[in-house]
Structures are given as structure tokens and as C-alpha cells.
Design a protein around this nucleic acid. Structure first.
Lengths: 345, 345
DNA sequence: GTGAAAGCGCTAACAA
DNA sequence: TTGTTAGCGCTTTCAC
């Protein structure tokens, strides 16, 4: 905290210089809650400027019980990878932006799924936060400890990417159902009958939904689900290459592939090129997310776009609403995916 | 901030339940500064647990003038891209990790180079920060406003990636001199005589150093610097493709290319593949940074690795030292780049 | 070894 | 319209 060699400039210094009381200084600087005369107002403003006065947020926070700070709590299996993933980076960016515009600050706090929660509890009960945006990764009951902790502290909270089971926490979710379905539909619409799916880490709900909706789209189109055409392992990009290699070895290989995210798709694409398979003629390919690599890849990837920055901004809007709602209900938001047609399907 | 339906549990509640004064509660919970008897200690601890007491950080901060919070201020031309860049994501990750281990929290604050600084000034003078880690992007005099602001608030500060001119601010820098030189040396060592360089956005110091060191390495090896072999534009990945296309059109094309970062190198690589140029036999290629794409690309990129996470951790160590140093000198740190030999050179 | 109380800087209720 | 002052929750000095 600030440690000037001279004394810190306070409320009282301004009051003294302006020849008024500290209350008036407060009234002027906060534009209320009581009116002030123009003359006094001018004197206070002048004194504040002369002294280069900046109100102390800590003192103000102690008094008003508001910190104007929000934390982003993001759980993951590998907390050190969290912000390196383009996925979270996008959300983080939108969130910061949305908060900054309203004078709120963002604290970032990654937490490993098996990490002890006492440190987090300390942060949450500290009084230094006005609200929390959290990103759950695990399913119940594994995420119950975190959820219970957040519930117990009574802080306004918004869940991002998925809903918080058994709670009234509002959320910003992706319409995964439609996204996975439409990605598959797009391939079907191009006349493909043998469509494979490279799935993500099935510990993640999004991976499971995409897989399930892929199947549903096939069935709805009167196509059979062939388990041989379903492969994958984790979100590790290398698994995309592995899966594609596997698919190419099939006696009866697919003519199109829906990969659960762009990294997987991109790595699969590289394998195709290595084997001289022409994309999209010999093999169509669609990804998911629309991260930078999708545009940069040659050929550029067709993909289902998730509006990451928008998600972050929506989360910012929601948590601000929740902070000011004072118990009133805040409605959840679902963002839509969008088919981005490029050159691979 | 926490708003329980019941009253907040405070110091006094614990004191009352334990039958002691608030002073003793503080002594026990903070292990000092005065000793306490074992009996009293037990009673206080028990009462604190019974009431689920958590000290209020704001009140504590007001009293102690310490917040245990640090901000990462990162300037850039496009503030919305800041944390999406794998570069900053790595630094951010290391920084959070290093701070968390010492009970400090990180606030993130991107700032556009042409942005008005009053909002930032407010944050810095707020009293809510114990220190600042900043990443300058512009050169003097353009960065002077930011630098002057930070200097004037008297907060402990650490500069990351580059030094802060005309100031005693300690820094975590990369040994760019060696990095750019060694990358070029590596290509020379393989017998290449015509080596091109795809440079980055020359508004950035790192881009300029890499270019300059590339030239120096050539000269030191008795090779001529051919301006036709130097191209590039911005850090935009697409410029890597553009530059490589240009190089291939030369009557006398290079046999090796040093790209100023991995994204540029990767996009250049795609162009090579498109033209059927074999890498590394017909054209060797080396990148810089060692971001994920360098590993995932096929063939994987040879590159100069920057230890991003380590940089963040070093920055954390330095800012913590600066916060506790109380005016004493904190020495700067330089991290080394490392040649990662993969398949493109 | 412990209690009482001052005071960190601010806001707002109470008085005037 | 403005001044006085209590008090947010904590740490630490002063007194015992």
C-alpha cells in the first residue's frame, strides 16, 4: 500500500484547505447524498486538486462494505494451464473489459480440482470481494465442496460455461446442444454418410454434450451411429492426431470428421496432410470454438464459433447486476454458437 | 462485500465468547506481536472456530496499510488482445502462481497505449495495492506518461520484459541479445549462407533486437546482410505467410529463415508446405518463444524458447521482495532463452 | 499476560 | 446548506 515519504493526503487535509468539514468533502466528491452549494463545491474541488487527493478505497470499503472488486475463480485439473488455454483467455478478456467499464477490478484465482479450499475460503470471507465469477469443471458430487463454500459465504456469484447444480446461481452458458448438433448437421448437409467424431476429455461436460448431440444428429438424419467412428481421449491436441491416424486405418474410413475443438481438429488436419488426403474433398473436417488457429491454419478451419469475449462480457454484466440486485433474481444468459464456414467443410 | 443475513462475525464476537479482549484475539490469531498464555490461546482459537470467524481484510488493510494485492498492468496497442496472446498468458500464469504461494492476490489491468490514464491513476492511488508488475510496450518518450505516473505514486514496482528507462525499477528481462543471435547462429552452423529474417512489429523493442542480432550474427560469421532477405510487418500471424510468399518469389531465395516468433514461423511453414518446399531440407526454419503451436505443428518447430512461466514467477519473487525491502535495492533478473531443436532446422 | 482505547480514512446520521 | 461525530473491524500502544 502507498507509503509516501510525506504524509498521505486525506479527507481532512482537503477539508482543512477548503475551509469546510470532512462531510462536505465527501458530499462533493461523491455527488451526494446531500446537496452542496456551488461555492463550497468549487473550493473543495480546487483543494482536492491542489493536494492531488485520491480517496482511499480501503477506508471507503470498510465504511461502505463495498470493494468494487470481483474475483474470477476458475477450477481445472491443471490450474497452471488455465489461462494459457485460448478458451479462458477469451473469457478473461471479455470479463476484464466489462468490469473495467463500470469501475470494477478483477482478481484472478485459479484453483486445482484437488486443491485444499481453505486458501480460497479465506479470500472469499475476507471482505475484499463484492462478487465472484466462477467456472466449475467437475460434475457433482466432486464440485460440491466448492459450490457449498461459495454458497456459504453469501457472495453474489455467477457461474460461467455451465450451470451450478442445485443452486440459484445465475449462469452464462453456451448453447452446446445446438452447437454440437449443428456442426454434425453441417456435415450431413454436404451429403456425408460416414461421419466420425473426435471427442474431448469426457470428464468435461462440454465434451460429453458434443458427443451426444453428434449422435443425435446422425440418428435424426436416419444415419447409424458407428462406434468405430468415435474416438478421442483428452483435450490434448496430440490426441487429435492420434485419433485421425486411427480413423484413417479403418477398413471403412469416414468421409467427414467433427472434432470437439479446434486444436484437435487442427492436429487431425495435419495428419490428413501428411497422408496426402485432400481436405475437404477426400475428408471434410469441422472444429469447435473458433480460436486463432482456426483462421491461421491452411486451409482455414470450418468451425462452430463460441463467442468467448462476449461470454466474458455477459458474465461481467450479470455479476454487476447480481451485486446491485440485492437478493433479486438475476436471469441467466445463454450465448449461441455460430457456424463459421471456411475451407475444411 | 459479504452481506450475511445475520450480523458479520467480528473480532469482538470472538473476544466476548472467549472471555478476553479484542487485543488478545489479535495476538493469538497473528501469533504476535505480544505473547499469550496457552489457556487463553486455546479459548480464542476455539471461539474463533465456533463462530467461523474470518478476519476482515479491509479493516486489517486500513489499519496496517497493507492489502496483500498486486496488480499486473500491461500496456499494449490492442488491450483486448493482451491476455489472449500466449505470451502474456504464460507470464500471467507464472505470476499468479508465485504470488498465490505467498498469500498475495493478483489483479489484472490491461491498458491501451493511447488510453487515458486517470482510471489507472485512481487504481494506483487507491491504497488497494501493495505493488505493481508492469509490462511496458512503447519506447520513450511515449511510455513516459505511464512511467511517470507509476513513479509518482511511490508503489513498489517491477517491470517485466523490458527495463524501465531512467528509473530504478527492477526488471525481469529476457536475454534477447543472446536469443536472436543464437537462433541465427544455429542456422549458420547448419551451413546456411542465405538466411532470411521475418521480423515482428518493429514498434516493439524485442522485434528490433531480434532483427539487429540476426544481422550481427551474419556479420560475425562473415556473411553479408541482404536487405531482400529481411521482411515482415507486424506480429499478425498472417504476415508470416505473406513474408514467406515474398521470399519464395525471390530470384535468389534463402535456404533458411529465422522468424521473430512462433506464430510467424508457423504461418510461414504452412506456405512452404503449400508450395511443396521440403522443410528442413529445402528450407530450414526457426521460430521464437516456444508456444504450444511450436510443439503441435507438423513438423514441430525448432525455436528459441522463452521461459514465460518462469518469468512470471521471477516477477512475483521480485515484487514481493520489493514490497518487503522497504526502499532497499532489489536486483533485476534476466532469464535465458534456450534453443529447442525440433524438426524444422 | 491482559484490558482499554486510540486511530487507520472514510461516509452518513444527527444536529444545527 | 453545513459541521460534528459515530463507527466500519482491525492492530497496537499505553496502562496495569
Amino acid at each position: 500500500m502507498l507509503k509516501t515519504n510525506g504524509r498521505r493526503v486525506t479527507n481532512r487535509d482537503v477539508a482543512r484547505l477548503a475551509g469546510v468539514s470532512t462531510a462536505v468533502v465527501s458530499y462533493v466528491l461523491n455527488d451526494g447524498p446531500r446537496p452542496t452549494s456551488e461555492t463550497v463545491r468549487g473550493k473543495v474541488l480546487k483543494a482536492a486538486k491542489a493536494l492531488d487527493y485520491h480517496p482511499n478505497a480501503i477506508a471507503r470499503g470498510l465504511r461502505s462494505q463495498k470493494s468494487h472488486a470481483v474475483a474470477l475463480i476458475v477450477g481445472d485439473y491443471e490450474p497452471l494451464d488455465v489461462f494459457i488455454s485460448p478458451y479462458h483467455a477469451g473469457v478473461l478478456t471479455g470479463l476484464i473489459d466489462g468490469l473495467k467499464q463500470h469501475g470494477y477490478y478483477l482478481m484472478v484465482y485459479p484453483v486445482g480440482v484437488h486443491e485444499d479450499l481453505t486458501a480460497l475460503q479465506k479470500l472469499l470471507r475476507d471482505g475484499r470481494l463484492d462478487g465472484v465469477v466462477m467456472r466449475l469443471v467437475q460434475d457433482p458430487p466432486a464440485n460440491q465442496a466448492l459450490l457449498k463454500l461459495i454458497g456459504s459465504v453469501g457472495l453474489p456469484c455467477v457461474s460461467i460455461e455451465r450451470t451450478a447444480p442445485n443452486s440459484k446461481i445465475p449462469s452464462v452458458t453456451i448453447d452446446e446442444q445446438t452447437g454440437g448438433y449443428e456442426a454434425t448437421r453441417h456435415l450431413i448437409a454436404q451429403g456425408h454418410k460416414r461421419i466420425a467424431h473426435i471427442h474431448g476429455d469426457l470428464r468435461y461436460l462440454s465434451a460429453r454434450i458434443r458427443l451426444e448431440r453428434y449422435k443425435q444428429a446422425l440418428l435424426d438424419a436416419g444415419l447409424k451411429v458407428d462406434e468405430n467412428l468415435i474416438c478421442g481421449g483428452t483435450w490434448e491436441p496430440a490426441d487429435g492426431a492420434k485419433a485421425m491416424t486411427q480413423l484413417l486405418k479403418l477398413k471403412h474410413p469416414p468421409t467427414a470428421v467433427f472434432a470437439a475443438n479446434d486444436s484437435l481438429a487442427f492436429n487431425a488436419l495435419q495428419v490428413l496432410r501428411l497422408h496426402g488426403v485432400h481436405v475437404p474433398d477426400d475428408m471434410a473436417l469441422i472444429g469447435f470454438d473458433d480460436i486463432a488457429i482456426a483462421r491461421e491454419s491452411i486451409p482455414p478451419l470450418t468451425t462452430m464459433r463460441i463467442p468467448l469475449i462476449e461470454m466474458g462480457q455477459q458474465a461481467a454484466a450479470l455479476i454487476l447486476k447480481a451485486i446491485h440486485a440485492d437478493g433479486e433474481h438475476v436471469t441467466s444468459v445463454t450465448v449461441q454458437t455460430e457456424l463459421i464456414k471456411r475451407k475444411t467443410a
